[in-house]
Amino acid sequence: MTDTAVNTSQMQISDEVAISIQNMNKWYGTFHVLRDIDLTVQRGERIVICGPSGSGKSTLIRCINALEEHQQGSISVDGTLLSSDLKNIDKIRSEVGMCFQHFNLFPHLTILENCTLAPIWVRKTPKKEAEEIAMYFLEKVKIPDQANKYPGQLSGGQQQRVAIARSLCMRPRIMLFDEPTSALDPEMIKEVLDTMIQLAEEGMTMLCVTHEMGFARQVANRVIFMDAGQIVEQNAPEPFFTNPQNERTQLFLSQILGH
């Protein structure tokens, strides 16, 4: 239990490379959706990816755990090269947690079963231990009392927090967030962001596709702006927001921060 416990003091980033993407290209049919992506993520880094819709930001993080296949270039996660080898894919997926815009909880299983399923079947954790781990993380996201309900009985914000807990139960070293708050009512966004901030403070390596710029300012080490399938600009949050260089970045920021 204790190895993931709080070490908020150590917020610095290690030199260890968590994700390395080199010259990665992806096409949907003839549509060139990701172009020459180069991205290195250090362990402990917290990266926010933003950009207009259709810019390829979701596709990029979905390539990292092989939900989408890339056609050119290389992606390696924790030193494991992502190829068509199913063993490598399974290894990477068990190291990388993912949260989706629409939560994707399993509606036929209780909250607790949602959280224990992968540890029991993938990690071969004994059921009792898996339940203890699940309750630990459900407490962390502050919904232990809902453990025996079904996802359909929870609010959107609660469901997303369960989804985060479900990923954490696999003890991932990297977490991917694909617009985790975009499908939520305004009053529920905060509870999910609080959970993510807590996770960031504990030193989790995180890649978040999100439009929550307040969150980006507060926790990100680096903000990446994507447009038309390419990384247009990346910088630390302060200079990124106050002094964007590329005019597309300026336009985008003026649109989402303007109102």
Partner: peptide, 26 residues
Amino acid sequence: PTGQYEAADSLGLNYAQAMRLIILPQ
């Protein structure tokens, strides 16, 4: 929804496990 397949994949379940535990029951 395809999200169910993706969630099962992202948790590292293999094909047989994903089908038996997630997809077929639903």
